[in-house]
Design a protein around this nucleic acid. Structure first.
Length: 287
DNA sequence: CGTTCAACCTGGGCGC
DNA sequence: TGCGCCCAGGTTGAAC
């Protein structure tokens, strides 16, 4: 479930291939249904060959790779959405079967960039500047969760009648948060995930913002969360280490590390939410 | 403005 | 051993 920390780890891992020239492009075909790729695999391969990797950026849970050296002066970006099980690797992938795109580099350094995706829900698109703006600009994504100010967070969500856990997953409001980290930051902030945004005062928004920064920064430092299904790996095909720090996610029925009460699982907007009913009471704190 | 539901996929875990 | 079923959750789009 690549969220901000996992995608940020992919981005920093990909810094190793910036400046390299693409010698060949491979889109393996197997028994699996091809993933969404625009333009077609064949055309993508033809256009990328001989180009250079100009840079790598993260936009919420998406990655853009600047492609230099296409004919003409216009720049293009390879925009990749890992969605549920997509990985960007500069090392051998977990299995050969689910490799969706492989760029081989030329020159002294050689090496490869691989997009691997077990479930195939991810997408790969080659976009021009306007397309990049549409896919990753403010009409699709709000401010990054690691860059937003406390007041901007409150400004963007504070009037909503939605439950705060559901609202945190809205990428147009704030970008990068998914199901796992939403649960973790609400626990750290001591906020009931069912609280309506418009019922939260300034103090609680600031507490949520502080928890957001703390949880995401620590998860980035530990290179994301590799769950028991072991899907997510770093760009070097190593597991993340933030799963050891999970306080509520995936822990229903287990005792809360703070108070010892049982952690509960509920469903909000068709997604699991994990929380501690005692540590995350609606009225906890001054509010 | 909002919610709900289905769809896209594969594979791990479970009950039988 | 194996089959059928449920579940994981990012994103989009339709229906209401």
């Amino acid at each position: 479930m690549p969220e901000l920390p996992e995608v940020e780890t992919m981005r920093s891992g990909l810094a190793a291939v910036v400046g390299r020239r693409i010698e060949s492009v491979e889109v393996p075909r197997g028994r699996l249904r091809p993933i969404a790729m625009r333009p077609s695999a064949r055309s993508l391969a033809a256009r990328l060959k001989g180009c250079r990797i100009g840079g790598v950026e993260r936009h919420g849970k998406r990655i853009s790779i600047l492609i230099d050296g296409l004919p003409g002066t216009q720049r293009r970006w390879l925009v990749i959405e890992p969605r549920m099980t997509g990985l960007l690797l500069v090392a051998e992938p977990p299995t050969a079967e689910h490799v969706r795109l492989r760029l081989r580099f030329s020159g002294r350094d050689r090496g490869e960039l691989i997009f691997w995706d077990r479930r195939g829900l991810g997408t790969v698109r080659l976009l021009d500047a306007a397309g990049l703006e549409r896919a990753c600009g403010p009409e699709s994504l709000g401010p990054d969760a690691l860059a937003i100010s406390p007041d901007a967070l409150r400004e963007r969500l504070g009037r909503s009648s939605r439950e705060v856990k559901v609202a945190l997953l809205d990428q147009r409001a704030v970008a990068g948060i998914g199901n796992l980290y939403a649960a973790e930051m609400l626990f750290v902030a001591g906020i009931d995930p069912r609280t309506r945004c418009c019922r939260m005062g300034r103090a609680r928004w600031h507490r949520l913002h502080a928890a957001m920064q703390e949880v995401l920064a620590e998860a980035v430092r530990l290179e994301g969360s590799t769950l028991s299904d072991a899907t997510y790996r770093t760009a070097l095909n190593e597991p993340g280490r933030y799963q050891m720090r999970h306080r509520v996610y995936g822990r229903d029925g287990l005792p809360c590390g703070e108070c010892g009460d049982q952690i509960r699982r509920i469903v909000q907007a068709q997604r699991s939410t994990f929380f501690c009913p005692r540590c995350q009471r609606r009225s906890r704190g001054a509010a």
